[in-house]
Amino acid sequence: MTTDTKQLIRQLTENADPVRPLRRPSTRAAAWLVFSVAYIVLVLLIMPLQHDISQKLHDKLFIIEQIATLATGLAAAIAAFASIIPGYGRRWIMLPLLPLMTWLATLGPGCVRELNRYGFEHLPLQHNLWCFPFIVLLGAIPAIGMAVMLRCGAPLTPQLTAALGGLAAAGLANAGVRIIHPEDVSVMLLVWHVGSVMALSALAGSIGRYVLDWRSILKFDA
């Protein structure tokens, strides 16, 4: 062992405060979900509802869609937290695929129906443009919480981890927006809601390298 390495080990040992091992990804995701849902519920309570939600509670497709959206958010959060643990199986990254497919599938029958009714050129894509800012508003605090929690781990795959974190926050925010959203047209939901969630996830992925970077987390106080 060279002198420099020996010296480094001595300095690292002198600065080794006790650390609490990170909890399992599923436990951390659950904690994040509780915090995020509490924030979203708080914002929704402050905002006036734009339509009667009680009617929607009898709509099976709406319930499945909401469960799938929440599951996508939760699965993406678990995958994001798993991706910052060295040696954790890479298959966890695929976890959000199933709920995401289910979410898309809930929009499928409506899309086909509207396509048959209006034709491709006259599809109803006019939209209340507030839905994107609402997803951003509801997703901002969960996204910040996610970023803080992700920085406690190892930035092994910064872009992918950030994209999964973004998907978790935006997916959860979308579930909140659907409660106050007045419109219910499947093609529009596919384009604006799924599109917004994917765009925010891609945006998070593109800045992942700057938020989750080895150089920014390496600690050496010697």
Binding site: N15, P21, L22, P86, L218
Partner: peptide, 9 residues
């Protein structure tokens, strides 16, 4: 140094 930084993981 990396092992030291992420030893909580």
């Amino acid at each position: 140094l990396s092992v030291h930084t992420v030893r909580a993981t």
